[in-house]
């Protein structure tokens, strides 16, 4: 009987495991880029990393849970002077709030793939609903780690004034697009 259970466990591939599976965020392949329109002309971009956190997926129950920490104090636009301006009180207020968080508890799936997740983004001490939609999602077996890696690209939108980060409007738009690369390594 024990042998049979062992055989069964060996036969059930990891990818269709029924239990919730926990993935730890891979900080080398997880970044948030923001995009905001400058004078209605060109798109300013900046990067937040390294992100840490974890994601739990239960494909059989079509449910999931994610908790991510995003260090806003490390914002990187390629211009140190602009980064310093972004960290000031009327934008990211990074001295008071060095980290943003995103906690998502509603997941939707397209087959085995995550299609969207929604939850609460806390930025600058203010919490607002945020939905991230998958542009692509996939899993593969990582050849070096010998573990399953799942991840994809997600996008979402926020209005920065809602978080009190309103400096420079309307020359720099209120609407901010988030482009999120995320990969998680199975625990």
């Amino acid at each position: 009987m024990q042998l049979r259970a062992g055989l069964l466990a060996a036969l059930v591939p990891a990818l269709v495991s029924a239990e919730p599976v926990v993935y730890r965020i891979d900080p080398l392949h997880s970044f948030v880029h923001f995009e905001v329109l400058h004078f209605g002309t060109s798109t300013l971009r900046g990067r937040f990393g390294q992100i840490d956190g974890h994601v739990e997926l239960d494909r059989s129950a079509a449910s999931g849970w994610a908790s991510l920490r995003i260090p806003t104090a490390g914002v990187d636009t390629g211009l140190p002077a602009f980064d310093a301006r972004l960290r000031q009180a009327d934008l990211l207020a990074s001295e008071l709030y060095p980290t943003a968080s995103f906690v998502a508890s509603r997941f939707s799936f397209n087959g085995p793939d995550v299609a969207a997740l929604s939850g609460v983004l806390t930025l600058r001490g203010t919490s607002q609903a945020l939905e991230l939609r998958a542009l692509r999602f996939g899993c593969h077996s990582h050849p070096q780690l010998q573990r399953e890696v799942c991840g994809g690209d997600f996008e979402g939108e926020l209005l920065r004034a809602g978080f009190g980060a309103s400096f420079g409007m309307p020359f720099v738009a209120n609407r901010v697009r988030l482009v999120v690369q995320v990969e998680g390594i199975r625990e």
Binding site: R47, R136, H140
Partner: peptide, 15 residues
């Protein structure tokens, strides 16, 4: 900014 697919899963970006 460049974008390149990372093993068909997510997109690596660099500037």
């Amino acid at each position: 900014l460049y974008e390149i697919s990372h093993f068909g899963t997510s997109t690596n970006r660099g500037r």
